[in-house]
Design a protein around this nucleic acid. Sequence first.
DNA 1: ATCAAACTTAGCCATATCGCTAAGTATCAC
DNA 2: GTGATACTTAGCGATATGGCTAAGTTTGAT
Lengths: 116, 116
Amino acid sequence: MAKFDPDLNLIFQALSDPTRRAMLARLGKGAVPVSELARPTGLALPTVMRHLSVLEEAQLIATEKTGRTRLCRARPDTLAATADWLEEQRAIWEGRADRLEAYVMKLMEQGDAGKS
Amino acid sequence: MAKFDPDLNLIFQALSDPTRRAMLARLGKGAVPVSELARPTGLALPTVMRHLSVLEEAQLIATEKTGRTRLCRARPDTLAATADWLEEQRAIWEGRADRLEAYVMKLMEQGDAGKS
DNA sequence: ATCAAACTTAGCCATATCGCTAAGTATCAC
DNA sequence: GTGATACTTAGCGATATGGCTAAGTTTGAT
């Protein structure tokens, strides 16, 4: 299997840009080619490509080229790992046993459902 | 009540630095003055101050000066809002009704427990 | 009154980021 | 094969980021 190690530096950096978050939201509705992802942004194509490569390096998306078009799709596993980090911090910060418990429960639930 | 509007740009940007995440983790164990937060980083104080101001502008921490020391504490509400955004995206990306349901349940739970 | 402690401000340097345009390369349609 | 389509690469400029040192400022202790 491919190694999956999310880098929080890259992930959060990628998420810090509204254009990229908009792209991710768009990808939530399904995989799309680069040009379609670019259209609503109004940005030049090289600029969009750059955003995409940031997202891909952060493993938030995966892309695949077929013919002359490149299809982009979201990678929920990375987002899940990120959500887990936040949830963990939240549990600690709130200092509440029930949140910690809920977090553990969710981890177990994922172990059951999240693996392919 | 004080206006609370989390800015995801600032938040994710703040979270993208490992030094700042380490500081947040440290604050999970309780409020501490600047110098104590600085010590484990090995960074110069002005550098640390800068990190702190980034965290504070993102509303991830709050600080309060008493005498000549400034005390820093975490702001779980902002982290919670961020976790919610991620959870929402995850629910969409995974395209699964049960995740969406779990998310809504959590929202309700927070509505019950999270308000001051 | 003096001195150390704990920030704080100002400013410098190196690198990274976000936008662009111009000029490639590689399909696909005819 | 000609031309259009869909990226891709190269490189520029403005601004932001993350580190530093040096020189304040404000308190607390003596």
